[in-house]
Design a protein around this nucleic acid. Sequence first.
DNA 1: TATAATTACTTGCAAATTGCAAGTAATTAT
DNA 2: ATAATTACTTGCAATTTGCAAGTAATTATA
Lengths: 150, 150
Amino acid sequence: MPKKSLRSHCPVNFALEAFGDMWSLLILRDIIFWGKHSFKEFQESKEGIATNILANRLSKLVSSGILVKSVDAVDSRRSIYNLSKKGLDLIPMLCEMSAWSTIYDDKTTAPKEFVEKIRKNRTAMYTLMHTVVKNGGSFFVGKNSVIENL
Amino acid sequence: MPKKSLRSHCPVNFALEAFGDMWSLLILRDIIFWGKHSFKEFQESKEGIATNILANRLSKLVSSGILVKSVDAVDSRRSIYNLSKKGLDLIPMLCEMSAWSTIYDDKTTAPKEFVEKIRKNRTAMYTLMHTVVKNGGSFFVGKNSVIENL
DNA sequence: TATAATTACTTGCAAATTGCAAGTAATTAT
DNA sequence: ATAATTACTTGCAATTTGCAAGTAATTATA
């Protein structure tokens, strides 16, 4: 199908058309914060995404250049989804979103050091996360996780 | 109806449940960037929101404490929607979203100074916008608009 | 002062999207 | 050889959306 034209080139609208639905953002969260990379792992997240929707969102994120899909070298059944540069550049937005919720949700599961660190030096935090995720890590999971360096 | 419980207290999910749908975000954009405040003005935006959806989203944003509704002093037909503190605190997120699109949409309508300014000193930009919008202004429109101070 | 506009909605209904359950195809593990 | 696992697809009911057409309460105009 031919790529349908945008309703507008307003930057907020552009972002919404690329990744602005609930499930796409939860997939990005799973990668950035939890180091998930496969269909199965995304499916196991507690919000409970349906498999047809998950397949649909993954293919949209790949075709908009935010995710890159590859086949696992040791298990060819597995597809691996990683963030491209374009996807890594969404880290600041996800961080601000999370920081907001951490302030306004009194039952938040986010660590308080996260918001403190962001308030002190946002750009440093974004840069650190960009590097960690680019190298296969994530905020919470992985041997070079962000949280153990806070 | 009793307030339905959240699927999770993950900060990304919390944000999505509060304002994470396309139309809610476009309403927030209209207020922050274009200084719109009434039903009619939101309806006129070029993305073309249907009036039933607009009414629904405005009432959700009010009940989640992001918007505050009041009646216009000089024309009692008009309802006026303003950002609460909780709403003003979404400015950083909207800015990062816009900054991302400005980089990746080669037809973006965003001014390039915006992204430059954010890269140089994000926090200063957020603070300026917070103040301007709090005082009834916006990024583009109003006598104390942000853009004329870039 | 009667009539026309305007503003902020609501209602009804068709069309699109979602959510759920159940497959399927291609590996990999036992 | 058989069972699991992984990444999907399919069918269908239920929910949500989009569109057109109201309605009610002002405010503006002849």
